[in-house]
């Protein structure tokens, strides 16, 4: 059995085809225009950033040499021949790595506490006063936009060298980043429990404590864990500006060309970051799982 599909009358068909072609052409023109603008931007940016392809290709050998050199000991043998010599400073480095993780932890906790105390004020659904919401949001935005290493540079001047400025820099930046995320979570809650508490006479704090908080806590914890992971990476470079942790040792060994030390330290940092990534991932899965349980 065969079915025939009736063809459209030619007049209608040509009109349809023409409209289709016009639509495709318009889309293509828009794409070409975007591509041209992007191309121009890239040319200008390339000129501004002194991109020099010749220099790059002339020196790319340096890069591979450098990476290869990282895995050679001072006596010219491969690092694998003598792991004890490669990781000669392991005790000292592990202690520094521990300090780095601790800086990240304390910074995350202090920042999360700050974000927690500000996020309800920055949520439109719980705070009636537009002025308070605006002020809280702009403050969070400011602390989020200034990079933590800039805070660290300034804090090193005022608090002195050491882990304290590093912790404070991470805490301030974390407060901004988490405060925004927390406020977004709070703005998406179900408002019925809040109305319920308000209707039975609860004041603002009771509304936050008994209606909003139970809805948002697991999301807060999940975002906090994610931030901790990011902050471990951040804490590893705090030492670049003298704000504690393993970064100081790393930057010294890079600048002084202690090749095998650089690779050992990098491996230590990457391994720590990966372990913490995996651990927080497991915890977050469990948190989200607990939330979705009927």
């Amino acid at each position: 059995m065969s079915a025939t599909i009736a063809a459209l009358p030619p007049a209608q068909r040509t009109a349809l085809l023409r409209a289709y072609e016009a639509a495709v052409a318009a889309k293509r023109r828009r794409f070409m225009l975007g591509a041209a603008v992007l191309f121009l931007l890239v040319l200008v940016a390339g000129h501004t950033a002194e991109v020099d392809a010749r220099k790059f290709f002339a020196n790319i050998g340096n890069f591979t040499n450098y990476i290869a050199r990282l895995f050679v000991l001072d006596n010219g043998a491969s690092v694998l021949t003598d792991p004890a010599e490669w990781f000669w400073g392991l005790d000292k480095w592990l202690k520094l790595m521990g300090e780095t993780v601790l800086i990240a932890y304390v910074g995350t906790m202090l920042g999360a506490l700050g974000a927690f105390s500000l996020c309800f004020a920055a949520s439109r659904n719980l705070t009636r006063s537009g002025a308070i919401v605006w002020t809280a949001r702009r403050f969070l935005e400011f602390t989020r936009t200034v990079p933590e290493i800039v805070f660290a540079l300034i804090f090193v001047v005022s608090f002195g060298l050491g882990p304290v400025p590093g912790v404070l820099a991470i805490a301030i930046h974390t407060m901004g980043a988490l405060g925004k995320l927390f406020a977004e979570v709070v703005e998406n809650i179900d408002m019925k429990p809040v109305e319920g508490v308000a209707a039975s006479g609860g004041d603002w704090f009771a509304q936050v404590r008994f209606a909003a908080l139970p809805q948002v806590l697991s999301n807060f914890a999940s975002y906090g864990l994610l931030r901790f992971e990011i902050n471990v990476r951040g804490a590893a470079v705090m030492g670049f500006v003298g704000a504690g942790g393993i970064g100081q040792t790393l930057v010294e060994s890079i600048r002084k060309f202690y090749y095998s030390d650089v690779s050992a330290l990098l491996i230590l940092i990457i391994a720590t970051v990966m372990i913490i990534d995996a651990a927080t991932e497991v915890l977050r899965r469990r948190l989200i799982g607990a939330e979705n349980r009927p």
Partner: peptide
Amino acid sequence: INVVGLGPF
């Protein structure tokens, strides 16, 4: 920086 020198590149 070790490869292409100091600068924006």
